[in-house]
Amino acid sequence: MGRLFAGLMLLVCLSPPAFAGLDAAAINNAEFKGKLPADDKINPAIVKAQVLLARTSFSPGEIDGKLGENAEKALRAFAESKGLAVSKQPLTSEVWGALLATGSDPIVVDYKITEKDVKGPFLKKLPAKMEDLKGLKSLDYTSPREAIAERFHMSEALLAALNPGKKFDEAGQTIAVINVAIKESKSAVTRVEVDKMSQTVKAFANSELIAFFPATVGSEEKPSPGGVLKVISIDANPYYRYNPDYKFKGVKSKRAFKIKPGPNNPVGSQWIGLSAEGYGIHGTPNPSKVSKSESNGCVRLTNWDADRLARLLKKGVEVAFIEREAANKK
């Protein structure tokens, strides 16, 4: 519902001056001058940094061109992995140089909208209440713009800012999108760490950190489990099954029900089941809310990050939930 409302309000909220000079050339040629930009405006250098982070599997979550908390988490994790000083300022000249050294492919490229992109089916409206989702045939995207933005790991606001005046529902139209091109690791994950305090997920191949993701990890009302669990299932395009014993806030149903698959399913496009009943790592219909809202005890990633992690995992891999005290000691 949040993304649908945001989409409806987009034309009202985006003022041209806030995005003046934002185009492919500005982003592809962006340089970091040492001064951090405001975190409420799209900045070409931050778009570039976010894309370079994503390509190296240090995900900033939704790529929006803003220096928000998820971008800061990814920058600090990347700096630590390169043996660089980790300071209060998440982006430094040294970190910027290390990012540039990871590759020189263009950050923004052209993309021609296909018939498949605009064909759908699309939801006319995404209901706000979970109970109202159970009668839908599938939990599809609400528009071609939403689908295209998610395909390229972008916020809808960034997609619109790069393509002023375009509506994204016309096949054959050429638009500007970001070029994520993530380098797939050949190593299989042997351990996953979920940090409850920092709201992050780290994937290791033995002792090597090979992937990092911002996450939403439980809530005070419904905390995530503790200790070490194991991956017991990996399911793409999952059904969502609600058990009334969960007693989720805002869900009044006293009967179990099932919600059909789709990217706007409550658990998104991927379910990684864990060895504690009802708990898992999964996607979300609201990528902009990752790390900024609460979950019902599970670990929530963007759909593309959940898909990425699932490709690296096998059943039986350990998933350790790091408590506040343990996290402080590390």
Rank of each mutant, 00 (worst) to 15 (best):
A71S: 13
S57P: 10
K129R: 15
L91D: 05
V47T: 11
R76W: 06
T142I: 04
V118F: 01
M130I: 08
K116S: 09
G61K: 02
A101F: 13
L136H: 05
K134C: 04
M130G: 10
A71V: 04
E94G: 15
G83V: 10
K119C: 03
A45H: 09
E94S: 14
G120A: 04
L75Q: 09
F152L: 11
E115C: 04
P60Y: 05
G61M: 04
A85T: 12
R55A: 08
A160F: 15
N43G: 12
A147L: 11
A74Y: 01
K66F: 03
E131P: 10
L52P: 05
L75V: 09
L91A: 11
I148G: 03
E115N: 09
Y111R: 04
E72P: 00
S59R: 07
P121E: 02
Y141P: 04
V95I: 15
L53I: 07
L67W: 02
V109P: 09
K134T: 07
L75I: 11
Y111E: 03
A71D: 01
L159E: 09
K41E: 15
D110H: 06
S81V: 04
K134F: 07
G83A: 09
F58P: 07
G120D: 03
L84E: 07
L67S: 06
T102E: 14
P127I: 01
S155M: 06
F58Y: 15
E115Y: 08
S138M: 15
K112E: 01
A157F: 07
T142F: 01
S104M: 05
S93F: 13
F152I: 12
G135C: 03
P127W: 00
E146N: 00
S155N: 00
P121G: 05
G135Q: 00
F122P: 01
N70L: 05
A45I: 12
A79N: 08
D140A: 12
S138A: 15
L53H: 06
L158M: 13
L52Q: 15
T92S: 12
F58H: 13
L136W: 01
E146C: 00
E131A: 10
N43M: 10
T114K: 04
E146W: 04
K119A: 14
V47W: 05
E115S: 13
Y111T: 05
F152T: 05
F122A: 03
K73E: 06
A74F: 03
K88G: 15
A98V: 13
N43Y: 15
K137V: 03
N70H: 07
R145Q: 12
